[in-house]
Amino acid sequence: MSETQTAEARAALDAVGQLPDDEIDLAATALQLARIDAPQCDWRAATMDLSLLARAAVDAATAAPAADGGDLAARRAVLAGVLHGEAGFAGDDQTYEDPANANLLQVLERRRGLPVAIGILWLHAAEAAGWPAHGLDFPGHFLLALEGQRGQLVVDVFGGGAALAAPELRALIKRVEGEKAELRPGVLAPMGRRAVLLRLQNNIKLRRLRVGDLAGALTCAEDMLRIAPGEAPLWREAGLMNQRLERIAAALTAFERFLAIQSDGPAAAKVRDIMAELRQRLN
């Protein structure tokens, strides 16, 4: 991708950062994030793929009266048929740590991805069909909920769109956190669109940190801040990464943004101490 195209993508992310959460186009924003990280991929073709996926969801919904009438089990079956059946998407449990699994452009090309990446495609298709749905902040494993008048149906998008009731959820949290883990309040907390995008990008950031690519992780964090400029912990993290990279002025700027959002508490006090030390180094 040329510098102009990268600038265009980042300008689009800056615009998303100013939108209310419910106005964010989840899949389109994920494509802009992916466009920066995978310039070799054809993002225009991917945009067309998303349109075709939405059209398929609409057609399938129209052909399923029970689903269109509010039957959540029927809606789950329709979306699973479109995404995992017709389109062939699946969770990648063979090369799970591959960063491509969190890049929506590459997910669309490979038809494989992480739970949150596949989940974004589910949310995109559900919205096209006119069916309310949202992400769930389940520990270590992104889930999705289809919403109905009498409650919600939890879906494991990584597992082919299987419905999960309490026994399956309990087994899943034990698999993620260990045998002593149990279901608790908050494990099925709904996620906003911005939070889903941050969870997607956090996978890339963490993978870069694991291989020692601090500069790449910082770039990822900076793009995350474009869509979520009010995310105080992320400003603090960007400040710490800039500090480690000896980018003192950038570190101070990030810490100042953190304090503008979160001025009280132990973390704020620690940041002030770090800033005092960094300013001494500038003198």
Rank of each mutant, 00 (worst) to 15 (best):
A66C: 01
W235N: 12
A67T: 02
A28Y: 03
A181C: 08
R210W: 02
I118G: 01
A251C: 05
A90I: 00
R257T: 09
L209M: 14
L26M: 08
V16D: 10
H124F: 07
I261M: 13
Q40F: 03
A45D: 14
R184T: 11
E246R: 10
L245P: 14
I36M: 09
H141E: 12
R35V: 01
A15L: 09
D49V: 07
R184S: 13
G69V: 04
A181T: 09
I24H: 07
A163E: 15
K180M: 08
A11V: 04
L19V: 02
L200W: 00
A60C: 06
G85Q: 08
A276H: 05
T4M: 10
I261W: 06
F142N: 07
G140D: 12
D98G: 06
A165D: 15
G151A: 07
I274M: 13
P185V: 03
R244Q: 15
E222F: 00
A73N: 14
P139S: 11
D156T: 05
G119I: 03
H124M: 09
D98E: 13
L143T: 08
P99C: 03
A73E: 15
L259A: 10
R236N: 13
L234Y: 00
D14S: 13
L200V: 08
T47Y: 00
R281A: 14
G148P: 06
G186S: 11
L198G: 10
R226S: 10
P233G: 02
A260Q: 13
A60F: 04
G81W: 04
A171L: 09
F158K: 02
P99S: 04
P233M: 03
R208Q: 15
G91C: 11
